[in-house]
Design a protein around this nucleic acid. Structure first.
Lengths: 191, 191
DNA sequence: GTCTATATCTGGATAGAC
DNA sequence: GTCTATCCAGATATAGAC
């Protein structure tokens, strides 16, 4: 017997809402987006929307989580280049970067819903990249003395920092700088 | 004749306000700080405070500018290490980092008062560091093929990114990572 | 599950007296 | 220059009907 309630239609609706919210935020940005705005874009009332997500902040976090999922699903090729690709693609949706930047700032408060999300993201990202780097180091394509955890932490901090700046000053080439970092940083001490 | 008005007492008062605001924000953080809060800390009414700064945002930007001035005034020694010292010192005033992070996010809107401030800061910072790097490169202490503008841009993006993350996850050692970056990045291709 | 309506709140800005 | 008082806008969250 096909269950109703949270399973079935409900969970699908949630996905639809998330998709619409993602699109709206990507287009209009974080500041221009209130819950009412989002509800309208999704064809729901404010109350209707909040039925699925308890609060505005939680909805926003859910949007970021969804984005991460689709980003990771589209990952191909070796670790660092794949992440640079994500950054490159992000440049086409400044609204989402803006959302992330605001959330990152707000997440400084441990009680904020984005706090745990950010911690998870840092941990998973660093772990994943560090693992890949260790493997590369093992096969000799990276210097033996490379601190892979440190490098991974740096990569994400650099990527996030570049994105925050790019939003204000689009003259910088985020992807190029990340690649430059990668080339130079990982070959140091090798020759 | 000693002028009154904006000059003399007025300008001093402004400084006092800025100092008190700086302290308050450093202690309580950005979110917990409303104009009323600030006014109280400074011993003024809300209206009194807003007499000096037109709006909340402008006041916040003024606080950041002031912070930059005192930071730069305390700079000693060679360029990169001095900046790392600033980051190290920042770790004692998370509230200010939080303020900066929020402002950086808000500055994505070109109409926001923090927008121009951020642009200036990026430009001055990058110029200054890049100049120092060029000098070091000239004297042979840096690789000849180092892109100094790129490296300077990276440094600040990395520093800002690390600070934003550190606010959420204080387990990382910002200064150590910056030094690690500096060592490895600038010696690449040198041996 | 979804809508309407509303409660409530917070906070920034303003006007005018002193 | 500074205070008091007020206004106003915007937004979230909630209650309850359908």
């Amino acid at each position: 017997m096909a269950k109703r309630g949270p399973y079935g239609k409900g969970i699908e609706r949630r996905e639809q809402i998330l998709d619409a919210a993602l699109r709206t935020i990507a287009e209009r940005g974080y500041l221009a987006t209130s819950v009412a705005e989002l509800a309208e874009a999704v064809g729901l009332s404010q109350g209707g929307l909040l039925h699925y997500f308890g609060s505005k902040e939680e909805l926003f976090v859910a949007v970021l989580r969804r984005r991460d999922e689709t980003d990771l699903a589209g990952v191909h090729g070796p670790a660092p280049a794949a992440f640079v690709d994500i950054v490159r693609r992000n440049a086409t949706v400044p609204g989402l970067i803006e959302l992330f930047t605001h959330m990152q700032a707000a997440a400084a408060d441990p009680r904020h819903p984005a706090h745990d999300y950010m911690l998870e993201r840092y941990q998973l990202g660093t772990e994943g990249l560090s693992l890949a780097l260790r493997e590369m180091r093992r096969t000799g394509s990276l210097p033996e003395d490379l601190d892979t955890d440190g490098a991974a932490t740096m990569f994400f901090a650099l990527a996030d920092g570049l994105q925050a700046r790019w939003l204000i000053d689009p003259s910088i080439d985020m992807a190029a700088l990340l690649e430059q970092w990668w080339d130079r940083y990982t070959t140091a001490g090798q020759r």
